[in-house]
Simulated assay, not measured.
Amino acid sequence: MGVIKGIEHVGITVPSIEAAERFFQQAFGAKTLYALIEKGGKSQEGDEMYDKNGLEPGTRIIAMRMMRIADGANVELFEVEGGHGATADAPSHMGIHHFALYVDDLEEAAARFRDAGGTMREGPIELGGKEKGPGNRCWFGVAPWGMQVEFIHLPSPIALDDQASSGPRWLPG
């Protein structure tokens, strides 16, 4: 299918690497693959990295972890010192809007999320529009630092605009 194979990882800036790592392990069964930067070790400095990855001058990445969640994309966690946010697209800006995890059981996923310290928003939500179908639902939760996580379950087909040219929506096997 060409050059692009799929999402390899999602990068998320968090306020505490230790707390976020524990949360991802407890809430999602994530496994820590490796630490790219350890606290107290050599950090990535914004003054050196701005042109390479957008890390703002005056900030520094003090910890990074690469984690794996089940059979989907990896998650790369960043802890940054020195401010969070003159630009929305820099590693020094806190978080991402949300990411979604496909689950077989929304209630079970929500319970595990709550047990790890997250809170669930109102839900589950019956999906509508092109995602409407028997059993197609989602439910949003909020991680302890405020980032949203969507749990989604799609047992019924989705009406794609042009499946002939786009192919089917990817779902975990």
Results as ranks from 00 to 15, higher is better:
Glu45Thr: 12
Ala88Pro: 14
Gly2Pro: 15
Gly95Asp: 03
Thr119His: 08
Met1Thr: 15
Ala100Thr: 13
Glu150Thr: 12
Glu45Phe: 09
Gly82Trp: 02
Ile37Glu: 05
Lys52Thr: 14
Phe113His: 01
Leu101Trp: 08
Val14Cys: 06
Phe23Asn: 04
Phe99Ala: 09
Lys52Met: 12
Gly123Asn: 02
Ala110Tyr: 01
Ala116Ser: 05
His9Leu: 08
Thr119Ser: 07
Arg22Asn: 13
Val103Trp: 00
Pro15Trp: 05
Asp161Ser: 14
Gly82Glu: 01
Ala30Asp: 00
Ala86Leu: 15
Ile69Lys: 04
Ser166Lys: 11
Val103Leu: 04
Gly146Gln: 02
Ile37Thr: 09
Ala73Trp: 02
Pro134His: 09
Cys138Asn: 09
Glu45Met: 14
Met147Leu: 11
Leu77Thr: 02
Trp145Leu: 10
Gly2Ala: 12
Ile61Asp: 01
Leu55Ser: 01
Leu77His: 02
Arg137Leu: 10
Tyr50Pro: 09
Trp145Arg: 03
Asn53Pro: 08
Asp51Ala: 15
Val149Trp: 00
Glu150Arg: 05
Val75Gln: 02
Arg137Gly: 07
Val80Phe: 00
Glu131Ser: 14
Glu122Ile: 14
Pro168Phe: 04
Leu36Glu: 11
Val103Gly: 01
Ser165Leu: 10
Arg121His: 12
Lys39Phe: 05
Glu108Ala: 15
Ala20His: 00
Lys31Ile: 08
Pro15Gly: 11
Met147Glu: 07
Leu101His: 07
Phe78Asn: 03
Gly117Leu: 08
Asn136Asp: 02
Leu33Thr: 06
Gly29Trp: 01
Met64Leu: 13
Thr13Asn: 05
Glu79Cys: 07
His9Met: 12
Met1Ile: 13
Gly6Ala: 04
Ile7Ala: 04
Leu106Gln: 01
Ser166Glu: 08
Tyr34Phe: 14
Gly11Gln: 02
Ser92Asp: 00
Ile37Val: 11
Asp115Phe: 12
Pro157Ser: 03
Lys130Gln: 15
Pro155Lys: 07
Phe24Asn: 02
Gln44Asn: 15
His9Ile: 08
Asp47Ile: 13
Gly173Pro: 08
Pro134Asn: 09
Arg68Tyr: 08
Ile158Trp: 05
Gln163Thr: 15
Lys130Leu: 14
Ala116Glu: 01
Gly82Ala: 09
Asp89Glu: 11
Gly129Met: 09
Gly128Pro: 05
Ala100Gln: 04
Gly6Ile: 13
Pro172Asn: 10
